[in-house]
Amino acid sequence: MKFDLSVITSNWQLFARGFGVTLVYCGVSSILGLCLGLVVALARLSRSVWLRGPAVGFVELIRDTPFLVQVFVIFFVVPASGLTISATTAGIAALTLYGGAYFSESIRGAILSVPRGQTDAAHAAGMSHVLAMRRIVFPQMMAYLIPPLTNQLIGLVKDSSVLSIITVPELTMATQRVLGTTFAPIEAFSMAALLYWVLTACLAALMGRLEHHTPTHRAARQTTAFLTVADR
């Protein structure tokens, strides 16, 4: 077996375009998914059964079925109800719902990790639920949220490759097109794997930096600096 580099070099434009489409799909779905995840997390933490029930149901439904089957349901079953749906819409919708369900679990966990006393103090000072969430809980939960969220964002990027099956022209689809002309699956898929690897590694690094800038970590850094000064 020989590894033919020309397969990659002569098709770099296809790979680049596919990479770009993957980036856009993942970016858009992550942002939409985070919004959805926040809503679902708040619904799950609410006192009302009418909000909690559907939220739990939605999360379980997504978590207990394969992403591929979800994609098929959205792409093939939803149109049966008369709604026309393009591969793009189906792809973004599938990734958003999928991401939203998993993100909501992390967000819920992060909210619950903020000590009760912090919200007690906010309420005792007359803050409303919304204000306490915005000013106290959200800034503090970031430090708890980022590590699990990083893993889930990486998962989202990886699973976006499945969208090639419904002809979304992302990286895996582009790779298959390369395959169509070169018949060199090992080279083509290795290149795709490498690109995904770079993407997920960059994502992990980026989230690591972001974690460093959460209010909690800023406070912690300040404290360490203070301690070093005090030691001297």
Binding site: S161, I186, F189, A192, A193, Y196, W197, T200, A201
Partner: peptide, 23 residues
């Protein structure tokens, strides 16, 4: 470990499938 966790399973499946037949 990093490769397995950082790349899509879908791609891995295709590489194993095509790779085995290639060799």
């Amino acid at each position: 470990i990093s490769l397995m966790r950082g790349t899509p399973l879908f791609i891995q499946i295709l590489i194993v499938y095509f790779g085995l037949s290639e060799i």
